[in-house]
Simulated assay, not measured.
Amino acid sequence: MKNVIIGKKASIGMNVRIGNFTTIENDVVIGDNTWIGNNVNILNGTRIGENCQIYSSAVLGGNPQDLKYNNEYSTLEIGNNNIIREFVTINKGTKSKQKTVIGSDNLIMSNAHIGHDCFIGNHCIIGFSVGMAGEVIVCDYVNISGLTAIHQFSVIGEHSIISGISRVVKDIPPYIVAAREPLSYVGLNLVGLKRRGFETEKLNELKEIYRIVFQQKRNTTLALEFIEKHFKQTIERDKIIDFIRNSTRGIIKGNQE
């Protein structure tokens, strides 16, 4: 290792490999078997789990890019088995939530930015040059394609996929594909759902629920009441209903074609 700077109080696990010209500050914890490339900056308040791969020139735990930030203590918490590619930047939290959280088993591609107080679930793919503003929530098994820009406070539901070069300004419900401009519902995420064991009967249920939400009923409140009355209660049905009812930004629209 050449010109590596490691704070005396940093906690480094077993079998951690650290590349040349990397800086790890004092208030940092890194789990076992994590690999860190060259020119990486891991800053105070960062917590990294086991078996992660962090590639060259990533900056983790930088101060929030928020004018309201006043040097209050906050953290960046990263789980296990994450791959963080070149030039990724992930900021720590502000007094709003005190932390930014990245779950486990995620791939964050090169040049992506994840802002302060974001929450990323597990098994997500964040494409290259995705820009994510503060306090965004990304649920499990989400795939965000490259060059997508995500407005602050947006929520992206589980098992959804967003097409490349998209502009996310509304919440995206679970299980769907979001594409076109303006960003719209264009169907279920069939490929992803089938890979994760969703059977035909369940896919048909989800498809029919979203037909009611996006096509048959123009009034969302009436659509949800109709679904509650006429569809058998299932975990997936209730997740969709709860997601839409709890959306503060409103959800994306249906297919405009």
Score class of each variant (00 low, 15 high):
Gly19Pro: 10
Ile176Pro: 02
Gly192Tyr: 04
Phe214Gln: 00
Ile144Cys: 01
Ser184Thr: 10
Ile42His: 05
Asn143Asp: 13
Thr234Met: 10
Ser166Gly: 15
Gly192Pro: 00
Ile240His: 03
Asn38Arg: 09
Arg47Leu: 09
Val168Cys: 03
Gly164Cys: 09
Trp35Val: 14
Asp66Glu: 08
Leu183Phe: 08
Ile162Met: 10
Ile162Asn: 11
Arg195Ser: 09
Glu50Val: 15
Gln65Gly: 02
Lys95Gly: 03
Ile176Thr: 03
Thr23Ala: 14
Ile176Asp: 01
Gly49Ala: 10
Glu257Pro: 07
His116Asp: 03
Arg237Gly: 09
Glu205Ser: 12
Asn63Phe: 12
Glu158Val: 04
His123Gln: 06
Ile137Leu: 13
Thr46Pro: 01
Val138Phe: 01
Glu199Ser: 07
Ile120Ala: 01
Cys52His: 03
Leu224Val: 06
Lys232Ser: 12
Asn15Glu: 12
Leu203Trp: 10
Glu77His: 07
Asn26Ser: 12
Gln216Val: 14
Gln256Asp: 06
Lys207Thr: 06
Glu199Ile: 13
Leu60Trp: 00
Leu107Ile: 06
Glu72Asp: 06
Ser247Glu: 11
Cys139Gln: 15
Ala149Cys: 10
Gly79Glu: 05
Met1Tyr: 14
Leu107Glu: 00
Leu183Ala: 08
Asn111Ala: 13
Arg196Lys: 14
Phe198Glu: 05
Cys118His: 07
Val142Ala: 11
Val88Glu: 02
Phe119Tyr: 13
Lys229Trp: 00
Ile114Leu: 08
Gly146Cys: 07
Leu147Phe: 10
Gly45Glu: 00
Ile48Gly: 01
Ile172His: 11
Gly146Arg: 04
Ile18Ser: 11
Asn111Arg: 12
Lys194Cys: 07
Thr234Leu: 07
Phe214Val: 01
Ile30Arg: 08
Ile5Glu: 12
Gln98Asn: 15
Glu199Gly: 04
Phe153His: 13
Ile54Gln: 11
Leu203Tyr: 09
Asn70Ala: 15
Arg196Leu: 09
Ile6Ala: 04
Ile209Phe: 06
Lys253Asn: 15
Ser160His: 02
Phe153Arg: 12
Ile126Tyr: 00
Ala133Ile: 05
Lys68Arg: 11
Leu67Val: 14
Ile252Phe: 01
Ser56Arg: 11
Gln53Val: 11
Gly93Tyr: 02
Asp32Gln: 10
Asn39Trp: 05
Glu225Cys: 05
Cys118Ala: 07
